[in-house]
Simulated assay, not measured.
Amino acid sequence: MPRNPRNQIYPANEDLPAARGGGPLVRLWRARTELLLAAVLGLAGTLLVRAAGDGHLLPLALTAGAISVPAATRAGRGWIAAHYWCVVSRHRLQRVCLETTMHTRAGRIPLILWITPTATGEKALILTRAGISAEEFEAYSEEIAAACWARSASVYRHRARAQFVVVEVVRRDETPGAAGPGLDRLFGRRAWVPLRPDLKEPPDLRRPREPALIG
């Protein structure tokens, strides 16, 4: 029995191999953010312990200030929360691909090249595998939203390079100052085509409006 019959792209009677999470290098790449953070914290902790053992208190004071100042400000807490949800959404998107048919017959899932905060959630740039298209991501948009604990998910395909897909996760009302650099720097403002007819270009990929003339 297919897990999701309405979007099943493989024959129901075909004996497909189970989707796999990838080899050791792939798993390390997917956990790069957590590994890098753990390495930085471990190195900083080692240096602080050595400094404290030598009687140098200035590094301890500088570290305490560097941690407490961002945590005490609204902008700092917002930046931390926005990037935390980027990590969560990246892993949840990978899980959706593993649990649905958004993987190849060999069990390989699409690559999440980049994920960045937006004013309403997160936006991921994805490189699809052979046999997977943007239309399949759109078919599973409800599963993506549920997996990411979000309100909704929108899918956009690159106008000239169909292997590139943008998945926009919307989890809250617009939050000023939470948006990242945007994907328009990679491919241009008019490069993305929405998969749903009721959508337009993503908000941060639209051209700025011309000022109205008075008089």
Score class of each variant (00 low, 15 high):
E135I: 00
G182R: 07
R20K: 13
L98F: 07
A106D: 15
P5H: 09
S154E: 07
G53V: 04
I9G: 02
L199C: 04
T104A: 13
R185G: 15
L98N: 04
P5A: 07
P203G: 00
P202L: 04
V169R: 07
E201M: 07
R108W: 11
L127E: 06
G180K: 04
A179N: 04
G53N: 08
Q94I: 10
G23L: 10
A160F: 10
W29S: 12
R3P: 05
R189I: 03
R6C: 00
A160Q: 09
I67D: 00
F164M: 03
Q163H: 14
Y10G: 02
T33D: 11
L111R: 14
L25Y: 02
R50D: 14
A119I: 00
G215Q: 08
C97D: 07
V88F: 11
S141D: 07
K123T: 06
P11S: 10
P11N: 08
R129F: 05
Y10W: 15
G65C: 10
V69C: 05
R50F: 05
A191D: 09
L199Y: 00
C148N: 13
V69L: 15
H91C: 03
W149I: 04
P11I: 02
A145M: 04
P194T: 01
A150E: 03
Y140W: 09
G45S: 12
L213S: 08
R95T: 11
M1I: 08
L36W: 10
R92V: 05
I9W: 05
H91L: 14
L127F: 10
L60F: 10
L28D: 03
R157S: 10
A75H: 05
H158A: 04
A179G: 13
E138N: 12
G180H: 06
G188T: 08
L199R: 12
G42D: 02
A139D: 11
L43P: 00
S68N: 00
W114G: 01
G53H: 10
A119N: 12
M1W: 05
A75E: 09
I214R: 13
V166C: 09
W79N: 09
L25R: 13
W192N: 02
A179C: 03
R161I: 08
R30I: 02
P110S: 13
